[in-house]
């Protein structure tokens, strides 16, 4: 009796195909990451060392933090192209306000990210501008604003900020701890909080969520605020580590890395799902690809091409899955 009633809606012939594509989408990133680690263990000198590990983790933090915010936005079937510019704004504000103390400067920088996110959220959630358009505008304007604030490269000598960038506890850099804390927090939000449940429901079927009385606009605004806030935090950490802020360079093209990390981590661009572990693995994979190429003296531009190939492949797998479902 129950056999007939819970049969999946897809015709049988397509099930195998769909399941395979689904499996690749969900787990491909872990397989790829493991393979790349194994390859490096085999062919890269000094790959298995505390220093290499530390460096890789430190370098992945900005992209990872941005990607976690991006995963939330993509979960709502949105996209945020402004994250790189927000990083630059945050970094450019640090030298301006450092005179008031480390805490104030960092606070203002992060607040600026939240404000930028609020603007994006209101444009998308309340006014109904398409996410890609709204955040493209902020991306362009934000970079200009960062240049306005920052002007040229400024070095940062404040001991507090420097410690934030290069200090560590028990051998683990602060920045890595912060990234881990952010990951845990975002995981908690998505899995345990009402906000997270509402977010995935809205991304999964916005009209149904509206009719169920969910606060759709509020959730959308919150999501973009969180994304902006995390991007600003990433900008602060990047400035702290490099002990300088260059508004023309900070966060350049980070939106692409972040989107790539989220997508290859198995979060569908069509929304309705947020995969935190996948996003972390995705960010690590991107980082490791770049690092592997650098280890072997292959120029950075090649790494960018590799990144492009991966994102196209990842999106292709997603599309293939959706087509099979129809």
């Amino acid at each position: 009796m129950s056999d007939g009633t819970i049969a999946p809606p897809e015709p049988r012939t397509r099930r195998g195909l769909r399941t395979d594509a689904d499996w690749i989408r969900r787990n491909g990133v872990y397989v790829a990451l493991a393979l790349l680690v194994l390859i490096n263990v085999a062919v890269t000198d000094n790959f298995v060392s505390e220093n290499t590990l530390r460096l890789q983790l430190i370098q992945v933090t900005p992209v990872l933090i941005v990607a976690l915010g991006m995963a939330l936005v993509i979960g709502t079937e949105g996209i945020d192209l402004s994250v790189g510019a927000v990083m630059a704004i945050a970094a450019s504000l640090i030298p301006l306000y450092i005179g008031y103390g480390t805490g104030v400067a960092v606070g203002i920088a992060v607040l600026a990210g939240a404000i930028s996110g609020a603007v994006a959220g209101i444009l998308v959630g309340r006014i109904g501008v398409q996410p890609i358009i709204a955040t493209l505008g902020i991306m362009v304007a934000g970079r200009g604003l960062a240049n306005l604030f920052g002007g040229e490269i400024k070095s940062i000598r404040d001991p507090g900020v420097v410690a934030l960038g290069s200090g560590s506890v028990l051998g683990i850099p602060y920045v890595v701890l912060i990234a881990a804390a952010v990951a845990a927090l975002v995981w908690f939000l998505v899995r345990r909080s009402t906000y997270g449940r509402q977010l995935v429901a809205i991304g999964g079927n916005k009209r149904a969520a509206e009719l169920a009385g969910l606060p759709v606009r509020r959730v959308l605004v919150t999501t973009y605020v969180l994304c902006g806030l995390l991007a600003a935090l990433a900008g602060v950490l990047l400035a702290a580590r490099s002990q300088a802020s260059d508004p023309t360079k900070v966060g350049l093209l980070v939106e692409l890395s972040a989107i790539t990390a989220v997508v290859i981590g198995g979060t569908p661009l069509s929304g309705g799902q947020v995969r935190i572990a996948g996003t972390i693995a995705g960010a690590l994979l991107m980082q490791l690809i770049t690092a592997t190429l650098i280890f072997h003296d292959i120029p950075d531009s090649t790494a960018q091409i590799a990144q492009a190939v991966i994102v196209v492949a990842a999106v292709y797998v997603q599309l293939g899955r959706r087509r099979a479902r129809r």
């Binding site: 999964g204 009209r207 309705g272």
Partner: peptide, 8 residues
Amino acid sequence: AEGIVPEL
């Protein structure tokens, strides 16, 4: 379109 959230 207006009822189920299919992936949930």
